[in-house]
Each structure stands twice: as C-alpha cells, then as structure tokens.
Design a protein around this nucleic acid. Structure first.
Lengths: 341, 341
DNA sequence: GACGGCCGTGAAAGCGCTCTCACGACCGAT
DNA sequence: ATCGGTCGTGAGAGCGCTTTCACGGCCGTC
C-alpha cells in the first residue's frame, strides 16, 4: 500500500472516482465524453481529474478497446535520406494537419535497411498502431508486401511498383508529365530532352512514360540522346543537364522529373551560357517552394498534396473502421506556368 | 464465444499455452527469453508460437510492466521544415542505429505549431513512450519545459536556451567556431567575416560567440560590417555573402555557421569573381555530406554525431532505469581541413 | 394510484499479459 | 534413507481501463 514517490504512480480511475464520490464507470464516461452523465456528477469528476492531474493509461485503454488511436507514417527507404526530401516534409505537414482535428496521433517510423524494416514490421504487427501510411520509394522494398500480408490497415503513398492489390493514393504522374511536355510542344519546341527520375521508383517511371507519350502523340520519334536519368537531386540534375548539352547541343527544351533536378539544370544552363526560356525552355515537377524563386521562376507540375493526404487518411480510417474494400485514388496534377517555359 | 473472422482476433498467450501443453507462465517465459525453461518445453512453445503466428499484445504487456519499450524523438519546430535539415536526418540515422541492437523502438513525433505541440505533450504524458529525446530549435519553444515538468525521462539534443536544469547533449559549438576562426587567423587572414546562424537558436548563438572569442583572443576588434545573420540555409548563405561583399569588399575570409550557408557563400563568391581560398578563405560548420564535394572542398567543423547520439541514448536509458541525476555532455568538435581555407 | 419506460449509476466481468509464490521432482550431501 | 537445495512449472492475482447488465428513481400515461 506504499505510494511510489514522484514519477511512476500516476493516479488511476479508481482514485478519481473515490475523490469525486462516484464509481469508476462514471469517471470513464466523463473522460470519454459520454452524454449520459448528470451535470453535477460530471463537474465533480472534472474537478477530481484536474486536482489529481489524472491522465488515462493508454495501455489499459487499448487493451480493452483494441484501438491505439495512433497511426504511423512509415518511410521505407533502402539507404538514402528521405528526410531531406522536401516532398516528404510536405506530406508530413499535410498529414498532421489532417489529423489535427481528430484524436488520432501520428508517429513517423523510419525504416532504412533490412534490420530496421523488420523492426518496423514487428512494431506494426504487434498492434502498436491502428493503421499505416507507407511511403515506399524503391522497387526492392519488401515492407509493402509484409504489411499487406499482416492485414494491417494500409494505404500506400504512391502507386505500388509490383501492381499488388493494395490501397494507394498517388498523383497522376504520367498525366502531369504529359501535360508538361505538351506545354513545351505547344511553345514550339521540338528538341525536348528529359532528365528523368530513378527508374526503380514509380514517380520516375511514370513521369518518364508521360514524357514519351506526349512526344509520341505529337508524332515525334524518341531520341535516346535526349534522355538522361537523374536521381531527383539538384546536383544530379546539374550533372544530367551537362551530359545532355554535350550529347545534344541542339536541344531547345528540358522536362525535369523533379524541381530539384530542374534547379540544378537551370544552373548548368546558365553556366553554359544558354538563356532560359530563350534558348532552352525548362519545366520541372512538384511545385516545390524553390520553384517560385528560381531565376527565371520555374514552370512546373503541381501535385494536389492536401487532397492526396486527405484521401490517404480517409481511406485509412475507413479501413480502420472495418471497410475492407481495396481502393485507389489518382489525383490530377496541375501545370503551373511561370517564366521558364 | 464467436471467433472474429480474419484480422482482429490474434491468438493469445492462452491459446499458445494450450497448444503447447504448458501453462501461460511458461509461454511468457519463453517469449521473454527466460533461461528457466526446460529445452523440450521451450521447443514445444516455439512451435506453437510459429504455428499460431503468435505476436504478444504490447498493450497488455506494458499494462503490467509499465514499460512501452519505445522512445520518441520529438522535433519541436515552430513553423519551418526541420525535416529538410540534413543534420536532422543524420541524427535520426545514428539514433536508430544506436537502438538497433536493443529491443527499443524509435518513433518520431513532429510538433509544428502550438496545437501539435500540445498533442505531442499529451501523447508523451499519457505514457506512450518510455522517454524522449527532444530537438527543440527555437527559443520560444515551450515543449522542453512542459515535458520536463511532466517528469518524463528526457534528453535534449542541444543545450537548452533558457539554462533550465535538464539533461542534454550538445557539440562544443563555441569551441568549434573558435577553432575554425583560429584556423583562418593562422592562415594569415585578418578581415574575417561571419555568416552567423539565427540568434534564437543555441547553435547560432554559440557559434557566433566562438567566432568573437577567437578574434578577441587575437586582439582583433570586432567589426559590425563583417557580421551578417543567416538562417542556416544555402539560399540564406548566398544572400548573406552578397551583403557582406557589399559592406566589406576587403574581407579575406568567412566563417559560415553552417555548411549549407557556406555552400551558398561559395556560389556568391564565385559569381563575384573572388577565388577561394585565394582571395577569400571559407570555413563552414557541420561537415555535411555536401562539404566534401564543393569546389573547392570545404574546410569545416565536424560534430561527433555518433558519439553524441550514443550519449543521448545512454543518458536517456539511464533515466528510464530510474537514475534521476541530471547530466550534460558537451562533445568536442574536430576541424576538418580541406581546400577552402 | 399503478405501470411501462427511460435515465443515470454502480457492480463486476473481462482485455492479455507478467510475476510472485507455492509446489513437486530431483539432486547431492549427510 | 533423510534432508536442504535447486530447478522447472502452474495457479492466480492483479495492471487500469471499458462496457454490459441490472437496478433504483423518476417521468408521463392510463
């Protein structure tokens, strides 16, 4: 019957009930906002809660409710730093904004490398979270399959590479890239190069496909000299642009599969003495913050990130509620025309 | 007595015990790796566990152990994107590496803005995690005080601004900046400018203090024209460098309080036709990945990030174990001399 | 004035786990 | 043989909470 000193023994429902002169059940009702409590009882409980600084024990609670009221955003990345990606930062922001009004908590789980992925998988399978939103970037990643097989409510951010039947939300990467390239064509450009993203990432693949589709639609045969693979980084974009200029000095436009790469390309072009958009028109992808402040401001493809995260949370919560239907949402992109093309 | 279909009803300890022909207690012992189990009993349990795909319920477990076996890295940031900061990405990586061999899980909690900070505070106070490592960047941030007051095991990454008595680990920012500046002095530079970090962040303050201390030590009076405030970003560094060149065209060296700013400064210097290190020597801070690949490679101050994260986890785990002593660790930095100075 | 209905409440049964404690089996020492 | 000791095991008591169920008090209705 000893009271542990200091930290450790936080007050329980019973103690609150005793102080308020009611039963555990009533306290529980008040804490959980049940309407079936007499106002004066409610007040008494609220006072006791405040006085004791009572905080419900989530372990005890979720033991009976079978809910944890938290969802995880897991970042599965073989080795590189997803965190540095501003796109990811925006997803996190939108996501926590979307959950701000709910009583759901959001935790981020980083799974770099095999061991960490296993740890994350265990964490999730144990039931620490009610559901997960998974950003898995590369083809070889096994986490999507593992989590799907564990029957955890799951939404993928980005279309799954292997076409597995799993719930996902993505931007219309192909359509966006097609629009971007079509815009270039509409501006009279004919020697349109591309700095594409990694071809083991769906965004890289789809954006490249959109570029090709637009060219084909215009009856232009693809020229391998006009295609380089970047890595979605600024430095990579700069390098790729240099390679492109060397291989195809006559190019008159570039579609970069990400704004970061477009920024790098812009720099290389300036260093090479090519004017933008005079000599070379440039279009990026993402509508990153940086796109508006480049010189010249970058024409780019915007993804409806708020809409996408809303869909993700909707689809996830629906699964958490028990809806088993696998659904997908592909959100339309929007071409943001600035000065670079 | 109905068995819920599909997901939901995972097997319990009892079912495993029944299948293995032993008691709950024995299964628990096996699952938790207790040595006091006869090999054959152990084997029977392991088989049953595998067959039933048993995963322990963490809520039930932590209800009795009063442990969650997870710690949180919380990022408290008023509005900007911490995530884009490569420094943060490295901390995350080192941290999860440090925890890889333990059975502790790491979750990241993002607390941008007041509402989210409250949510995070509630999450932590409820006991969802055993302890927290807190990266709080700005002065006005209330989370450190709130969490400290909640008596949650807590380690701050970075010296607290208000000098509150709380456990923290930091690099010797002042010493590192002093060394960097001294290196510049040792190279014969006398008009040494600085692009300092935000003065509401401890790293910004301390690095600036180190710069001044070195100058004073050399008997050089500080010149306000040689001081600009940056914001730790590359773009900010570029702008600051431009301002510096305008105000003090005769400067012969720059100490930038972060590598990102140094990279921006390098670009501005090149655009302005100043050679590095010929006309202007440049030193950065952080030893970011980018520092090695700039032109010229950047002399910079490296923080012992692995050592720092090890200290953080050590100090945190010690608190989790019950050690109440407030301690701090300030880790020495190391000057990495490359070509820029 | 009796009665069915509703409302606020409390008693109590778990949720799935850990861990103490007691107990029987077996060992070597006496 | 007898004994103290160790070892593996199981029964059972909770951990703090939610939630069903039953119950007493009160309402309006006939």
């Amino acid at each position: 019957m000893t009271t542990l000193a200091g930290r450790g023994s936080s007050p329980t429902l019973d103690e609150v009930a005793q102080l308020a002169g009611v039963s555990r059940a009533t306290v529980s009702r008040v804490v959980n906002g049940s309407p079936k409590v007499r106002p004066e009882a409610r007040r008494a409980v609220e006072e006791a809660v405040a006085q004791l600084r009572y905080v419900p024990n989530p372990a005890a609670r979720s033991l009976v409710t079978r809910r944890t009221d938290t969802i995880a955003l897991v970042l599965s990345e073989s080795n590189t730093q997803v965190f540095s990606d501003p796109f990811f930062a925006r997803v996190v922001r939108e996501l926590s904004a979307a959950l701000a009004d709910t009583d759901l908590n959001l935790v981020l789980l980083a799974a770099r490398g095999e061991r960490e992925q296993e740890k994350v998988a265990r964490y999730v399978r144990q039931g620490h979270v009610d559901g997960v939103i998974l950003m898995s970037l590369h083809r070889e990643d096994t986490l999507p399959a593992v989590l799907a097989e564990a029957r955890v409510p799951l939404v993928l951010s980005g279309r799954p590479l292997d076409g597995h039947s799993v719930c996902y939300v993505d931007a219309d990467n192909t359509g966006g890239a097609r629009d971007a390239t079509a815009h270039l064509l509409g501006g009279g450009r004919r020697r349109i190069a591309t700095i594409s993203g990694p071809q083991d990432m769906i965004a890289g693949i789809d954006r490249h496909a959109g570029y090709r589709a637009a060219l084909e639609g215009a009856g232009i045969a693809p020229d391998p000299a006009l295609v380089t693979a970047g890595d979605f980084t600024e430095a990579g974009g700069a390098r790729a642009m240099a390679a492109l200029l060397e291989r195809a000095p006559d190019l008159d436009a570039v579609f970069a599969a990400s704004d970061a790469m477009a920024v790098g390309a812009l720099r290389t072009l300036r260093d090479a003495g090519r004017s933008v958009p005079g000599d070379v028109a440039v279009v990026g992808f993402d509508d990153a913050a940086a796109a508006a402040t480049t010189d010249p401001p970058l024409t780019t493809v915007a993804q409806p990130l708020d809409e996408m995260t809303r869909h993700m949370t909707d689809l996830l919560l629906r699964q958490v509620e028990g809806d088993a239907g696998v659904q997908a949402r592909v959100c339309p992109t929007r071409l943001v025309v600035r000065a670079s093309a």
